[in-house]
Design a protein around this nucleic acid. Structure first.
Length: 265
DNA sequence: ATGGTTGGTAGCCAA
């Protein structure tokens, strides 16, 4: 089973890329972030025409996430628990039946947090990460294959960016941010890409500005974090870098993980 | 080099 995460940076501006990607990469489940669309204007029919189920949590103008899948989900939950006043559309969770049980796939768009001295933005990021940690602790107690996939807006380690000095003061790389990410790992979640390679300079995002793509000035911020039960079934991962070279690309590329959920638990 | 690029929106903001 192929599970993907992709920050698409505007699903309506990117519908041709999305179709081309779904047809060529053929994921079973895809987590999309930054759809920048309300549910009413989401290009549902175009995606359903390719044989996918579509679940969205939209928002006007920015944010917004979608979970699209070949299988019908058994259960969908919208929003990250822990703050009823939070109106930003950044989280959608689906449960899917596989042979021998269920898998749980969460699509998340973690707040960017810049600028870090803003009175609202960085504290919101850290609070959101605390809520994610509490959520993960709850779900990990179920002892089932759990995949938390999305744009984390976190550069986990210095080797995940082209130049750590450039990112030193950025909300994506501050020690406090990285420590919060490590707390997720310490709960028992593993970075799928890092389970399969220790290679440096693997990136999932290149800024549109200053020729970052041409110079390979990228960062790795899109992650699939796995429970032990999911990690046990992991076969391989891939960062689909070629998608960044397409016409009118997103600034992020899809990150995928292949699993074998066919064996009994 | 505190620059420059994109999407959604009509607030220039968010990234």
């Amino acid at each position: 089973m192929k599970i993907a995460t992709w920050n698409i940076n505007g699903v309506r501006a990117r519908i041709d890329n999305l179709r081309q990607w779904l047809e060529s990469s053929n994921p079973d489940i895809a987590c999309l972030q930054e759809i920048k669309s309300v549910d009413e204007t989401f290009p549902r029919a175009e995606i359903e025409a390719l044989g996918y189920h579509v679940e969205t949590l939209g928002q006007k103008g920015f944010n917004g996430v979608a979970l699209i899948s070949k299988m019908q989900p058994d259960e969908i939950t919208r929003g990250l628990p822990g703050d009823d006043a939070d109106e930003q559309a950044r989280f959608i969770e689906g449960v899917f039946s596989v042979k021998g049980g269920a898998i749980r796939v969460c699509c998340l768009y973690l707040p960017n947090g810049n600028p870090p001295d803003d009175p609202v933005k960085y504290p919101y990021k850290l609070a959101w990460m605390e809520r994610l940690e509490a959520f993960a602790r709850d779900r990990l107690a179920l002892e089932e294959p759990l995949i938390l996939a999305g744009d984390y807006n976190v550069i986990p380690e210095p080797q995940d960016c082209h130049d750590p000095r450039v990112w030193a003061g950025d909300a994506l790389f501050l020690p406090t941010t990285r420590a919060a990410f490590r707390r997720l790992e310490n709960l028992g979640l593993s970075d799928a890409v890092r389970l399969t390679t220790d290679q440096s300079k693997l990136y999932s995002f290149w800024d549109y500005q200053a020729g970052a793509w041409q110079k390979n000035n990228g960062i790795r911020i899109d992650h699939l974090m796995l429970s032990a039960e999911a990690a046990d079934r992991l076969l391989s991962t891939d960062i689909e870098k070629h998608v960044r070279g397409w016409e009118k690309p997103s600034d992020h590329v899809p990150v995928i993980a292949m699993f074998d959920f066919s064996a009994a638990a």
